[in-house]
Design a protein around this nucleic acid. Structure first.
Length: 287
DNA sequence: CACCAGGCCAGCA
DNA sequence: TGCTGGCATGGT
């Protein structure tokens, strides 16, 4: 892998295990959308159009400084995914899932955005989660000029200043009060998000679960996608289905699936979970 | 008209 | 501690 500057573009040549489609469509993020030949998104306060041609990835209209400061970390380019895949390939189910989702990278997303996005995800479907997140940004996020006008994800301060009535425009349903509780706990310092990167996986999860609307599953998503705790293994309906289907002959696993995953995947649980989730959804594993 | 969607909370044994 | 109904909204 090597970095080249080409006018206003940054080209990452000869990337390994990096596929934009699988990375953006595996369900971990909500603000990247297919546009023309590539994907357009707003993340970490910046807009980006990104394309892929074979193993070359082009970040359009950006700078080397932004690449180093933002995108290299965001796309997890310092990690050896070949090594992860090799370790997980001892499991035949994971082997199939990794073949299908080759090139998935776990994005290092903004913690607050991840917190609010996965609160919205509860008992919801992905297209509508994306709509609600966009409405949050358009109504309360700072505008960003990139050809047209786009919007950053709102700050904790801006959301904490909202009333339930203010928030009603995003149509988050019963989750609106949870969004406010989260924003207010962050602004007051009751929950210190940045510090949760340095504490243990269990401690970070326990802290997040003090927020209304953050239960076991949502907390696991936040620590995995927004805090870099890669041993987290979020269990949702799709993971439950695929574990039952492939490891328990289609019967109810009838055990703690979290413990089961911990024993099987160890501290690579988060990576395993993303491959399995994507595999289950794309193959529409039956209930 | 039901039922479902990356679940969670409150109330109850 | 473990279970269940209800929950806002929009799509099928």
């Amino acid at each position: 892998m090597r970095i080249c500057e080409d006018g206003k573009d940054i080209i990452i040549k000869d990337t390994k295990q990096f596929d934009l489609t699988h990375t953006f469509d595996c369900g971990q993020c909500f603000r990247w959308n297919r546009q023309e030949e590539g994907y357009f998104g707003v993340a970490m306060g910046k807009a980006l159009y990104i394309t892929q041609s074979g193993s070359d990835i082009t970040l359009h209209n950006t700078t080397l400084a932004d690449y180093k400061q933002v995108w290299e970390g965001y796309f997890d380019l310092g990690r050896d995914y070949a090594k992860i895949q090799y370790t997980l390939s001892g499991d035949p189910v994971l082997s199939a899932a990794m073949l299908h989702g080759s090139g998935i990278r776990i994005l290092a997303q903004d913690t607050f955005e991840t917190l609010i996005s996965f609160i919205i995800s509860a008992n919801n479907n992905i297209p509508r989660i994306k709509l609600i997140v966009e409405r949050l940004c358009q109504n309360f996020g700072q505008p960003l000029e990139y050809g047209e006008k786009y919007y950053m994800f709102p700050t904790p301060e801006r959301l904490a200043a909202c009333s339930l009535e203010d928030l009603s425009v995003v149509k988050a349903g019963f989750r609106d009060k949870y969004i406010l509780d989260a924003a207010r706990k962050v602004v007051s310092g009751d929950i210190q998000l940045e510090q949760l990167k340095a504490v243990s996986f269990a401690k970070a999860k326990a802290e997040l679960m003090r927020i209304k609307g953050v239960g076991e599953k949502v907390a696991n998503c936040i620590v995995l996608f927004g805090l870099g705790h890669y041993s987290a293994f979020p269990i949702d309906v799709w993971i439950k289905r695929i574990i039952d289907h492939y490891y328990f002959g289609g019967e109810d696993a009838n055990c703690d699936i979290g413990e089961f995953a911990k024993g099987k995947f160890g501290d690579l649980g988060g990576f395993a979970q993303q491959y399995l989730f994507y595999y289950a959804r794309e193959n529409k594993v039956a209930k």
